[in-house]
Design a binder for these strands. Structure first.
Lengths: 248, 248
DNA sequence: TAGTGGTCTAGACCACACT
DNA sequence: GTGTGGTCTAGACCACTAA
């Protein structure tokens, strides 16, 4: 089951194993999973390791713990813990629809002042700019513009980005030397201009959800600036928030 | 420093102590804090306990750990980890502005079918409905409608809610017997209808950010349904997302 | 009363950063 | 090499749930 020689820590392996048991339906939503002591026996690891794996899955909203009762697979209500950065492709697939993409632009360019500031770029630094029309089941729903700091994604092939079937995030995560750690999204309501109305196939001035994103590496460097514009009728953003008990 | 007789677990006490050291400026943003072994000596607890406290603060975005270097107070870039439910009042105050509220409606009512479904109510159950116009520095920016499950907030005084200076979340957190654990927000772009345009002082059909929220107790019961409508020009929603490293 | 998760201890070895 | 955080073990006692 678990492999101590593997590079991946035991708790991480256990985490994925439990998650795959849920995804493949071995354990169903709302059901009790084996107790900590059973998992200890079954996988031959210590309680700390088991609890580290369970704790991570609880924080993702995949499991729920109840003292004295046991650990349960969370109800599907909390199935999509979208406090993680997700790829549009995966997100739409998970909802049972077919994501699509039409690349409008993919070049190495000098960024606008706004993007350069957000990405903390020095004079003369360039970005790889990718503009795509995103579709769901063939219908246009949004416009994505990504600017990647060229120097942080060495060897990224622009021709590869033009391929309409690639997931930008999967390429990014596999290519980056320093891993990505987090992103700040700013969401606001807006209305379409002339050009975007035509691309999205809606009347000029239609409401859209505009999301601006800056993604950071674990060393704190910004690596991507993104702008996502979604047709209001087609796309909502769902976020799971935690309530921190305060004593102040 | 830490009190073993206290009801609050040691790691939780340590967590608050570290946080207060940051808030009072004992440790500054970007600075190194004492190492784990120093904290062990200083507070007379085990490494597990120290790491549990530090781990929580890291997950809140308050601390950053770097292997081989140490643990740092996060830069202010990530100071506001808005993957937590926040009160409008606190949120605006933190940005250095003056929040305000005008109560439009506060009564115990039979909820709409939509709200009853979201709150998983049985036939005949009532909610306490609170409608407020929210202001920042005196200007109207949003409309908040909250429906609280009456049976879960016993002793909640409706007259108290009419007071324009109360923070609903502070009242809720202090009154609930079962603590609140999380909320699901759904954000979308929309446009104002006639009535809302007048209240917000914008032309009919102006873009607004519409947020629908369902808040849950730790036992999984929904306790609040909220609808927040913000003037697009005045309010953006900022979210910090984590990137989960996947190996699939 | 038996079993569960919640907290805590005192160790151990490793990978990594700095000097 | 020394010190840091990352992972892991083998215990312990407690609070809570359910039979």
């Amino acid at each position: 089951m678990l492999n101590k020689e593997n590079n991946m820590p035991l708790y991480r392996q256990l985490e994925e194993l439990i998650q795959s048991n849920i995804e493949t339906g071995v354990w169903n939503h709302g059901q009790l999973i084996p107790s900590e002591s059973e998992l200890i026996k079954q996988f031959g690891v210590s309680r700390t390791t088991v609890r580290q794996a369970l704790g991570a899955l609880v924080s993702y909203g995949i499991l729920k713990r109840e003292q004295g009762r046991g650990t349960f697979v969370a109800e599907s209500k909390f199935e999509h813990p979208l406090t993680e950065v997700t790829s549009f492709t995966r997100d739409i697939q998970r909802k049972g629809h077919k994501p699509g993409s039409i690349t409008l632009f993919a070049e190495e360019v000098v960024p606008s002042a706004r993007v350069a500031t957000k990405l903390e770029l020095k004079e003369g630094e360039t970005v790889i700019r990718l503009e795509r029309l995103r579709t769901v089941d063939g219908e246009p729903v949004g416009l994505h513009t990504s600017s990647l700091v060229t120097s942080l994604v060495p060897g990224l092939d622009i021709a590869e980005l033009r391929n309409n079937d690639v997931s930008l995030y999967e390429i990014l995560l596999s290519r980056l030397k320093v891993p990505m750690s987090e992103a700040i999204d700013t969401l606001e309501a807006s209305v379409t201009d002339d050009c975007r109305s035509r691309l999205l196939g809606v009347p000029k001035g239609s409401p859209v959800l505009r999301v601006e994103r800056v993604a950071y590496l674990t060393n704190g460097r910004p690596v991507e600036h993104g702008e996502m514009i979604y047709n209001a009728g087609c796309y909502k953003s769902v976020i799971r928030l935690s309530v921190r008990q305060r004593n102040d």
